[in-house]
């Protein structure tokens, strides 16, 4: 069975660390970084990147539109 793998790119400098993406991720891929970006926010990043299925839920709810999503079949 073909497995679907996804990957996200977070524009960390524009992320405001609201955690809405983290809550809406069905697989627990996203976590908040331990360090801050230029604005002082704990930005989102794909901590468990092998779990990502490319569903784009995170990008859909991101108020600042900082997430880009890629998906492929392996």
């Amino acid at each position: 069975m073909a497995k679907i793998r996804g990957s996200i790119v977070v524009d960390a400098e524009r992320c405001k660390g609201c955690e809405v993406c983290m809550v809406s991720c069905p697989t627990g891929t996203i976590a908040m970084a331990k360090e801050v970006n230029g604005k002082g926010y704990y930005y989102a990043y794909p901590a468990n990147q092998e779990l990502c299925i490319g569903c784009a839920n995170c990008a859909m709810v991101c108020p600042d539109g900082v997430i880009t999503v890629y998906k492929t079949k392996i």
């Binding site: 793998r5 996804g6 990957s7 996200i8 790119v9 977070v10 524009d11 960390a12 400098e13 992320c15 891929t29 970084a33 970006n37 930005y43 989102a44 990043y45 794909p46 990147q49 092998e50 990502c52 490319g54 784009a56 990008a59 859909m60 539109g65 900082v66 997430i67 880009t68 999503v69 890629y70 998906k71 492929t72």
Partner: peptide, 25 residues
């Protein structure tokens, strides 16, 4: 430059699912 990127092999233009539209500046 802050690194917040997933698996690099998947990040190709043909695999793009979702990105911010250009109408948003």
């Amino acid at each position: 430059m802050i690194e917040a990127t997933g698996i690099k092999e998947i990040i190709k233009p043909e695999n793009l699912v979702y990105r911010k539209t250009d109408i948003m500046t």
